Each structure stands twice: as structure tokens, then as C-alpha cells.
Simulated assay, not measured.
Amino acid sequence: MKKRRTVAILGAGMAGASAARVLADAGLPVQVFDKGRAVGGRMATRRSASLQFDHGAQFMRAHGSAFAARLAAWERRGIVAPWAGAGRRVGVPDMTAPVRDLLGDLSVHSATTITRIRRDDGAWYLEDAAAAVHGPFGAVAITFPAPQSAALLDGSGYALPDVGRAAFAPCWSVMVAAEGASTGDLIEPHEDPIRLIALDASKPGRPEGVRLTIHATAAWSRRHLEEPRASITGSLLEAAERHLRVSLRPIYAEAHRWRYAQVETALGVASLYDAALGLGAAGDWCLGARIEAAYDSGAALARTIVADLNGAA
């Protein structure tokens, strides 16, 4: 019996975008679903009026040949550029640019929260928070952070091995626009409460101005996870002033809580896939705490799905 060939990808971060690109390049129809208003996942950019902040992942680096080749191709096309040394690359004009490029003109359903998946007569259907049903699909690829993937699977009555074993650290992120002047690009104290301070204007293609993104350490974020945003903002601003040895005069300050910011325990496998169901999962939590790991994991899952669906054609 022929399998349906359209694939649903849940999540439009790097893993989902990488999977979508491999599937589309192999000739399989793809539909991508994401709860956010914009693609990128943790490769996120926040805008407020004329202000812009990369408040999630700050940069990318390549350790393997596949992602190195992709970064080089993006750099030739002006989609990424070097920043802050040590092989770091950033998206241009923001960190979502590489994800947008991978997704290209593919079908992306933004602001769509998938609450349940179900299998009926050999095909997959997705139910969203607005009670709409999407499908049928021949396969489903879930690329959410592992805790969110596990919750969707459990709530839908399905399972994939070891998803619950992957663990994440949280991160409080504070975005600050200030008066005055600032120099430098990236400071990484790795000392409570601050893990890093990134000066956004130092990144290629960014607007001028003093805009800082402050990331708290995992330990401090975990201890203060449920505190009010105003309290978090005040604490991290004060700590940033100590590290920068300046008095910041904020004209804008906002905190964002990343509950699943960085992988602490990875599964050590490229991806997960149940061929009998046509159900898989991918993400940095499969391979490690890097954007490259998300890219590699998504691509690996997509290749498995291509082989499965083409073999059953």
C-alpha cells in the first residue's frame, strides 16, 4: 500500500527548518507548523518599535563538515557573517535569517499551536488550539524541545524511546536599550548571575545604538525561574553594570524567560523514528547543546523519512 507523501513538521526552529529543506529537496511536500508568530525558535529576534534584539541564541559555530559547508554557503550569500571571533557566525540582519532561508517558500503555518496528533486509517492528522484539523500526512516530524515533544506524544497516546531522558536548562534573558556609548561585542563571565552579555549593534547588519542582551546562568535562572520579570530585569541590569563598569541609563528593558534554553542531557542519537507509525522527533536534544546539533538532527530525521516514504511508494 502506498503511503501518503506529505510530511508535517512541528516546530520552525533550526531542526524543523533543516528537516523541511532536506524533505523538500527530495521532492516530498512539506507543511511546517509553529506556535510562534515568526520562525526561528530559540534563534529568535525581538523587535519593539525601532529596537531589535537577538534575545535567544547569540551565534553559531561549526564542528562538522555538513554544517561548516552550510555556514560557508550562507556567508557567501550574505545570510551569515563573522562576529566576535573564534569561528562564530551570526545571521544577517538577525538570527532568524538562516532559518528563514532554509524554509524559503515552503508552507509554514505560524501562530498555530498543535495540541494533539492522531493516526487514522494509515494517515496522520493534527489538531490545533483553534480546533482546526490538518492532514492527512504520511509522516510527522516533531522538532520541539524534548519536554514539549514528550507532552504532545503523551497527550496523544503515542511514544518514542527516551524522549523523556533529554534534559534542558532554563535561561532568563534581558533586553536593554540604553543611552550613551558602548564598545566591545561579547562578554562571557559565566559567573552568577550572568552567563553572557552581547552588544547587538556590534553584529553585522544591525542598527546602531546601545542594545544589550543579557543571559543569566542556568543555575541562577533555575533558582529565580518563577520570579516577576521586573525583579529579574533589575537584578541582571545591576549585575551587567558591574561587569561593564558603566552606569546604564535604560530607555527600554524587558525580560524573556526561556524555560527550555539549552540542552543539559542529550540522547546521543541523531534522531528518533518509528517506521511502523511514520512518526519521528529531532532537535539539539538528540545530539548536544549547539545550533549545529539541531541542524544535523533535523537533516538526519528527514533522510530517514525520505527513505521510508520512497521505499513504500
Rank of each mutant, 00 (worst) to 15 (best):
S221V: 01
D121I: 15
V30Y: 02
G36H: 10
E254F: 00
L277W: 03
I142K: 02
E75P: 08
G278T: 01
V140D: 12
R229D: 15
P136V: 10
A111D: 10
Y158R: 06
R223K: 13
R257M: 03
L10Q: 05
I79D: 06
V108K: 00
T213A: 09
S110R: 15
L160K: 04
A17L: 02
G41F: 02
V32G: 04
M1S: 14
G164T: 04
C286H: 13
G135T: 08
G13Y: 03
A281K: 06
L225Y: 07
L199P: 06
W124T: 05
S182I: 13
S221A: 03
A218G: 13
L272Y: 08
A270C: 09
K203N: 14
E241R: 05
L272G: 07
A130T: 14
R21W: 06
G155M: 04
Q262R: 15
R195M: 11
Q31W: 07
D162N: 11
V39E: 08
I142H: 05
A230K: 05
M1F: 09
T6N: 02
S107T: 14
N310M: 11
A20E: 01
L199Y: 11
G13Q: 05
A275E: 08
S18L: 04
P207R: 12
E238D: 14
A240F: 00
D34E: 05
S110W: 14
S65G: 11
V210T: 13
V108G: 00
G85R: 08
L237E: 04
M14P: 06
D120N: 12
E127V: 12
W258R: 00
R70Q: 12
F33G: 02
Q31Y: 06
R303Y: 07
P207Y: 11
W124G: 04
E226F: 01
K3Q: 11
A159M: 07
D192W: 09
G155A: 07
G138L: 00
A84V: 14
A276L: 10
R46A: 14
A177C: 04
P207F: 15
A139W: 07
A312Q: 11
I291D: 10
L279K: 02
S110H: 15
L51M: 12
E238I: 10
P82W: 13
A239S: 06
T96F: 11
L236D: 01
R249I: 07
S18I: 03
D105Q: 05
A84L: 14
D308V: 02
A111E: 07
A15G: 12
G180W: 05
Y252D: 01
P204M: 14
G155T: 04
H190G: 11
A68S: 06
A201N: 11
S156E: 15
G16C: 00
G40E: 00
D200M: 11
W220D: 05
D121M: 15
A12R: 03
C286M: 13
I117F: 15
G104A: 07
I232A: 01
I142E: 03
S18E: 03
A313Y: 08
A129G: 11
R195A: 13
A69C: 04
I251N: 08
V39I: 11
A261V: 00
E191S: 10
A111F: 08
R119P: 12
D284T: 04
I214L: 08
E238Y: 10
S202K: 12
W74T: 02
E75G: 09
I291N: 12
G155R: 05
A230T: 05
A19M: 05
A81S: 15
